[in-house]
Amino acid sequence: MSSLVQKGLQISKNVIFNVFLQRAGKLLGKPFRVAVVLREVAAKLDDNNSPKGALQQIADMGRTLVRLVSAYITGSYRHIEGSTIVAGLAVLLYFLSPIDLVPDFIPMLGLLDDVALVSWFISKFAGEITRFREWESTSAVSASGVAPAPANSDRSLPAVAELGHS
């Protein structure tokens, strides 16, 4: 994984990525256009033809990045530096673009630079992503007033109130 992060760091310093940083900075003031980009990135991440397995964790983090930028754009999450959002949006734009260091139409290799850049972003901004995920889990509780059920909860057991306890 560290070699992917190092490759991503190299890409982040490339002139081509600077073009995406500038584009992201300009795009940030246009929430509707950002929403379109986010939908397209999410669709690309969910592509059934994409390689799965070891890359699944990176795809999940990519989805988290999509949610993070979306929450920032809608104004529901602002506990993050603007430069981090610009970098995140630039990574998503790079991921979406067929024109990058290794064109996406080249099987497997075409996605490797995209995955490397996402890996770099995740490693560089791990603390920001962790804080966002914590905010997501607590905001889900505050929005609904009910904590989400644990993933391994057994629905066959009666709730405490059903047992006559309150």
Rank of each mutant, 00 (worst) to 15 (best):
S142F: 04
I11A: 06
S166L: 05
S97L: 08
S166N: 12
F32G: 10
A159G: 00
V66S: 00
G82P: 05
E81S: 10
I122M: 04
R133E: 15
H165M: 13
L9R: 05
R78S: 03
A35K: 14
Q6I: 05
P150G: 11
N49T: 13
K52W: 01
W135I: 02
N152K: 04
Q22S: 09
S156G: 01
V37L: 15
L21K: 14
A59S: 07
V66W: 13
A24I: 04
D60V: 05
L9D: 11
R133Y: 01
G29I: 00
F20S: 07
D104W: 02
K44E: 15
M108T: 09
A161Q: 12
E128K: 07
L93N: 03
G82A: 04
E81C: 00
A149Q: 12
V5N: 03
V36R: 14
V146M: 10
D114R: 07
F121A: 07
A90G: 06
N14Y: 07
A54K: 08
N49E: 07
L9N: 08
K30E: 13
L28S: 12
G82K: 15
A43E: 15
S139N: 14
V41E: 02
L93C: 03
G29Y: 00
S70I: 01
A24Q: 00
E40H: 12
E162L: 07
A71H: 06
R131W: 10
N152M: 06
S166Q: 08
E128W: 08
V15I: 09
T138L: 14
P107Y: 09
T130K: 12
L45N: 08
S144T: 15
T138Q: 12
A54F: 10
A54S: 10
Y94T: 08
I99C: 01
